[in-house]
Design a protein around this nucleic acid. Sequence first.
DNA 1: TGCCTGATTGCCT
DNA 2: GGCAATCAGGCAA
Length: 193
Amino acid sequence: MHLQLLGLDFYQQPTIAVAQHLLGKYLIHRSNEGKTVGRIVETEGYLSGSDPASHAFRGKTTRNAAMFGAPGRVYIYFIYGMYYCFNVTTAPEAIGEAVLLRALDPVDGISLMQARRKSEKIDDLCRGPAKLVIAMGITPDLGGHDLRAEPLTIAEDLRDEPPQFTATARIGITRATDLPLRYAITGNRFVSR
DNA sequence: TGCCTGATTGCCT
DNA sequence: GGCAATCAGGCAA
């Protein structure tokens, strides 16, 4: 597979555009356990100011500080007392916006994903924001990491056509449930729900 | 200080 | 389909 790193300008696009353009891209993590690769098939945008479902809605805090930092970085947060969710920060500094990765198509390192997830089911390895974090071996110490650098990067396969996607309401939130900020590759079997 | 909720998941009925 | 697990942050008192 021929992969090429994304350019910096990618990270300066508006959050909604980034959420859509991340579809079809590859998330690559190299750890001492091995390499895992997943194709992004489902994302959600979280905006600033007008989006009460966003962690950034009430302003910058210790927890969400990464959202207000430089774009193209990792924002990872602890939720429900036991899980982590993985985001890519998007907007310029001081503007708290990010894109949540909700599902991946397992591409490489599948046996490692199965071991981490304690599950053999390919379809279920990365179908869900906390599941993909476990399968990819992403840990909270990667918070703030620059995704242009190892060990965790995002790349594209130039042979890929931009995928068709569907926009729907975001999942698992109780506020701003009307905003169509969830994007999923149309008909993809690895999309959550 | 105390209570409630959450960008979830998996187990139980 | 229902609900427990498990804890940090937000908000009321």
